[in-house]
Nucleic acid binder design. Structure first.
Lengths: 339, 339
DNA sequence: TTTTTTCACGAAAACGTTTGAGTAGATTTT
DNA sequence: AAAATCTACTCAAACGTTTTCGTGAAAAAA
C-alpha cells in the first residue's frame, strides 16, 4: 500500500506548520483564503484522510462498540446484530463482532480483548459452555471499573449491568394456552437441557400453563434434547413411547423436525397433532405446513440493547442498571388447528 | 465508567518515570526486581490495560479489518463471516462488520468510513443496488492508493483487487446435468433478474448444460423473480402456464417455494418433478422432502477471502491481484429422483 | 588506583492529530 | 502618533504508548 499522507507531509509541501494545515482543512477563519484553497486541493488530490487512531486518541473514545455472541450463523442472533448495527451506525459508532462459538475459552478471550481498550462498550450474549460452567470471572474487572456492558438473551441475573431479554415464560404460557384452547389434551414439550437459561424459562411457562388449567405435568412428555447427539433420534423416541396431540418446541428446528417425524409416522399436522415453535425464522414460514410460532423480536432486541449501551456510554449521570423485558407474540400459521 | 489508569498515573504513584513503568510491566531486565514487583502489583490491582489506540498509533496498524456485506440475516453471508472471523482472529486481527442492506448509499458510506483509516484492509461483497447502478466510484481512491481490498461472491471484474468467487457456472452445469441424467425432459429455471451477477452466471450454466445435450433452451421455462413482488405468485404463474418435470432454482427459497407450490398443485416431488436448489442452508436439510442442492462452501470462502487479505496486508512484495474460484459440489437428497 | 562494566533508571522523540495561546506585521481607530 | 484591532500564521502541549539513547552510581576487572 502507498504510504499514507499526513498533515506533516502536507505541511512540508507548503512550508507551513502542521497546525496551519489542520486548520486549513477544517476551513478555519484563521487561515488565508488562498492558502486554504491550495492546501485543500493538494489534500484532496492525495486522498488525505485524518488518521482515525490519532483522532480517537485525542478524543479519548474509539467510537466503536464490541459484540460477543455465541454464533452468527443463526437467524435470531444475526437479526439482533442487524438491530444493533442499525442503531449504532445511526449514532456514529462502529461495531466489532466477536464470535465465541459457544466456547467458554473463546468468550473469555474475546471479552478480555475488547476490554483492553479497543471499544467504548460491550454487548454480550453468553456462550452455552459459560452458562453450563457457571464461571463469570472474566466480567469481574469490567464490572468493578463500571465498564459499559449490556447483556441480552443469554444473560446472568447476578450481574449489575443492563440486560435485555424476552419474556420467555409469558411467551411459553401463551403458546401452551393456545394449544389447550384449540383442544389439545396431551401436550409434549421438546426443550433443551436445564443449563440453557432460555430452555428452562420456556419449560417453566409450559408447566405453569398446564397447571393453571388444573392438569398435571407428565414428565414423560418432556424431551430434553442433547445437541451432541442426533436431534431426530431423540424426538423419534418420544413418538415411539408416548401419544399426544400437541407439541410445544422451544425452537424452530425441534419443531420442524418433530413435524417431519409426525408425517413419517403417519400423523397429520395439524389434524392429529398441533405444533408450535419458538423463535420465528425463515424455516417456519417455508415449512409445510407453515409453523405457528412464538415470535421473538430479534431486531427490536438488538435495537434496544444498543440504545441502552450508547446511552450508558454517553451519559454522565450515575449508573442504575436496568432490565428490559421484551414481550413476544404468537404468530398463528397452519401447524395448529383453528378453533 | 471509572477513569482509566495510565502509565503516567502509575509513574506518579511511585515517583518514577513513565518509561520505567512501561519497562517494568514488560518485565524488562533494565528495571530492578523490587520495583518491578511493586509496579506490577499496583497495575494489576487497578486493572491496568495498555490503551490500544496509543499502541496501535505507535505500531501504525489497527490490527482490524473491515467487512462490508449486503445482509447478515442470511445463511450464506453469515457463514462467510464465520470463516473470516476464524482466520482473522487466529492471526490476531479483529473484524469490524458493516451492513449495506443492499443499499448503494450505505455501501458508499461504509466503504468511506472504513477507508478513513480505521482498518488495515477491507473485504466487500457488493450490494444489489450497486450492481444494478453499476457505479463503483467509491472504490477509486482505495484502488489508487493500493489499499488492501478483497471482494467475494458479489464482485466486479474490472477491479484490480483480489477476488474470491464460487464457480457458479460449473455448479449450475452440474445441477442441470444431474436433472437431465435422471431423465428430466423439460427443466424450468427459477432465477433472479439479470443485474444480479450470480443469477446471470447460474443461468449461463443452465443454458450451457441444456445446449450441450443438444436441446433448445425454452425461454418460457425461465422465470426471473422480482423480489419486490410476491415470490410465490411469480412461481405459481410458471406452474399455470407450463409443464415440466425438473426445476433448477438459484437459491433455497425459490426451490422450496416451488416444491411447496408443486405439492399444492398435486404434483409429487420427486416422482413428478425433481427439484434442485443452489446454496445449501438449514432450509434444505429440513425441507420435505430434503432438498438436493449445489453446496456453496461459505465457510471456506470466508477463510480464503480473509487469508488473501491478511497476506496482502502483511506482505511487502509487489501486489499481483488474483482471482480464486471455489468449486461447488452437488448434495443429493430426496427432492430428485434417483437413477 | 584507574578503567571498564553492570545496574537501574530517566529524557526525549515518535506515532498523527487537535486546539488554546502567542506573535509578528499590517491596518484601523482615536 | 499612539493605541487598539485584525490577519495569518506558528508554538507547544496533550492524548498514551514504545523505544533508543543517555547517565550517574556502584561494582568488577585491570
Amino acid at each position: 500500500m502507498k504510504p499514507k499522507i499526513t498533515l506533516k507531509k502536507i505541511a512540508k509541501q507548503f512550508e507551513v506548520s502542521i497546525s496551519t494545515v489542520s486548520k486549513a482543512l477544517k476551513d478555519s477563519h484563521e487561515i488565508g483564503t488562498e492558502l486554504k484553497i491550495k492546501i485543500k486541493k493538494f489534500a484532496a488530490e492525495h486522498h488525505y484522510k485524518p488518521n482515525s487512531l490519532a483522532v480517537r486518541l485525542q478524543n479519548q473514545q474509539t467510537k466503536t462498540i464490541g459484540v460477543v455472541i455465541p454464533n452468527i450463523v443463526h437467524h435470531f442472533f444475526s437479526t439482533v446484530i442487524q438491530g444493533i448495527e442499525e442503531v449504532t451506525n445511526q449514532r456514529g459508532y462502529n461495531v466489532m463482532i466477536c464470535l465465541s462459538n459457544e466456547s467458554f475459552d473463546k468468550e473469555v478471550l474475546n471479552v478480555e480483548m475488547l476490554a483492553h481498550g479497543s471499544v467504548d462498550g460491550m454487548i454480550v450474549s453468553l456462550a452455552k459452555e459459560t452458562q453450563k460452567k457457571n464461571d463469570y470471572n472474566h466480567f469481574n474487572d469490567l464490572l468493578e471499573d463500571d465498564f459499559p456492558l449490556v447483556m441480552f438473551d443469554r444473560i446472568n441475573d447476578k450481574f449489575a449491568c443492563d440486560k435485555v431479554i424476552i419474556d420467555d415464560v409469558s411467551g411459553s404460557i401463551n403458546a401452551t394456552n393456545h394449544l389447550i384452547e384449540i383442544g389439545c389434551k396431551k401436550i409434549a414439550l421438546i426443550t433443551t437441557p436445564k443449563h440453557i437459561t432460555v430452555g428452562t424459562l420456556r419449560r417453566r411457562g409450559y408447566v405453569k400453563a398446564i397447571q393453571d388449567h388444573g392438569q398435571e405435568v407428565d414428565i414423560d412428555l418432556i424431551v430434553e434434547v442433547d445437541e451432541r447427539e442426533s436431534i431426530k433420534k431423540q424426538i423419534e423416541e418420544l413418538f415411539d413411547t408416548e401419544t399426544f396431540d400437541g407439541i410445544f418446541a422451544v425452537n424452530e428446528v425441534y419443531a420442524i423436525t418433530a413435524m417431519n417425524i409426525a408425517r413419517e409416522k403417519g400423523f397429520k399436522v395439524p389434524e392429529d397433532i398441533s405444533v408450535i415453535g419458538f423463535t420465528d425464522g425463515p424455516l417456519s414460514k417455508l415449512a409445510l405446513p407453515p409453523l405457528t410460532t412464538v415470535v421473538q423480536h430479534g431486531y427490536s432486541m438488538g435495537k434496544k440493547t444498543a440504545e441502552l449501551l450508547l446511552n450508558r456510554i454517553e451519559s454522565k449521570e450515575e449508573f442504575k442498571p436496568q432490565k428490559v423485558v421484551l414481550s413476544t407474540n404468537l404468530k398463528i400459521r397452519k401447524s395448529t388447528k383453528s378453533l
